[in-house]
Design a binder for these strands. Sequence first.
DNA 1: TACAATTTGTCCGTATGTATC
DNA 2: TGATACATACGGACAAATTGT
Lengths: 269, 269
Amino acid sequence: MAPTRPSSSSSTAPAGDGGSSRATPAARLRVQRVRPAYRQVADELRAQIVGGSLGAGERLPNEADLSHAFGVSRSTVREALRVLASQHLIETTRGVQGGSFVAAPDPSRVVEDVGGALGVLVMTPQLRLHDLLEARLMLEPSAARLAAQRADADTVEAIREAAGAPRDLRDPSGFVGHLDFHTTVLMSTGNLMITMMGQPVNDVLRTRLRRVGVEAAEWDRVDEWHRVIADHIAAGEGAAAEEAMRDHLIALRSLYERDGLWTDGPTDT
Amino acid sequence: MAPTRPSSSSSTAPAGDGGSSRATPAARLRVQRVRPAYRQVADELRAQIVGGSLGAGERLPNEADLSHAFGVSRSTVREALRVLASQHLIETTRGVQGGSFVAAPDPSRVVEDVGGALGVLVMTPQLRLHDLLEARLMLEPSAARLAAQRADADTVEAIREAAGAPRDLRDPSGFVGHLDFHTTVLMSTGNLMITMMGQPVNDVLRTRLRRVGVEAAEWDRVDEWHRVIADHIAAGEGAAAEEAMRDHLIALRSLYERDGLWTDGPTDT
DNA sequence: TACAATTTGTCCGTATGTATC
DNA sequence: TGATACATACGGACAAATTGT
């Protein structure tokens, strides 16, 4: 609470009073560019949020009060709030009872953001399809082993459902169902960090990979592999599950890396 | 180019013209909350960027033109631009020749963002220290094996330097140097995706973990382990590097999980 | 059902800082 | 030394959404 001014130790001369007196000649050396006011406000509020001074669910002062407290205009406060909102640190609603509230940490939003960032990075010289598949090949076999060691009745059922759900291969949801098996395995480790590592890759593959050119028989083999892996996990056979997942991903990799499996943009094509 | 209006098919009645005519009674059922104009503008521009319609380095129209093109005010455009800038999709500079430019995809920014998001997630019931260490234990041994298989002269030198750099244990930079070895191993895989998976964890451990209570002799053993791993990687002994890294991380885990190694906030305490 | 209160959303006009030429 | 073109910031006003009376 009680937000402090962004800079300006003098209380009689609010920072950013339309036009102010900053512009000291020392700044001409371009040692460092002044950070805009909206950034300073955003940084200050972010520090209060991540520092625990503002707890999850807590309500921020309204925009008018914030603008007065920071000595900036309401427009500037709003730009700062937009930054925080786009980082999922606050959520804003309208109306009486509305306002800006500190958002609860949400892993799924992190996964979404990373997936989005991956979408613009992938297919550049820096990040190729092969890198994604190789990274997945590093994580998911170990995840399958861990899942086998820890699976209880509920997770086993979820994995079996993800592996065995019947689907029409011509239906787009079929492809989604396919990768949802891998997602389920990640989550079955009971380790959120492992899910957050692996899921963005799966998301990018799901949204940017074409299904054209893949024979139905190949998809049947994918299904069969999933069932085998699910059986190993259900039986608690960690080493076997790891091996089966590795073999499966290697086969998938050669399937994916055939030409024409990529789209330029999202799946709309 | 040629951005379209956010909604409002009628060209004679710009959306958000101070007061407008929307407010159809059908909306009273709260089927869906209307998205604010700044959000629609941001989404439209984002679609143009990720869709390739606006290439990296390309310049967006200035704020006045954008406000005219979208039929909204400059303030609304600015809020949209703040959202895109905070997602590292654009960069804005002032002055003539300035403006908003489509940013080049930058993996390091993704790593920073994920690290920041991890910082607010960690130490909640959803994500514990043990999860981070376990996830690292899954990734880095395999990464060490891959690094050994691929290391050329330059990367070997970098790894040796990260492992053998002398440091004062009482100096904070010593701790940084310690985890930089693990970062170097990740990067030595030549696979950016693996680095992006593992580095945020290392960042969080570096910024939020205390060094107090750790004996100097234990740090010496950490150094020794790093040297052993570096030797295996330099010799191209993948299996040995993987084993050594695994043993090292297991030992580190028991070291980290002792009481009192966590700080509530960033390292300032 | 109607009305009031509160808060965000959006607009406009204006002024200033900043970088380039 | 200007002149230009851009982002940055201000302040005030009104519209829209939500909740309560």
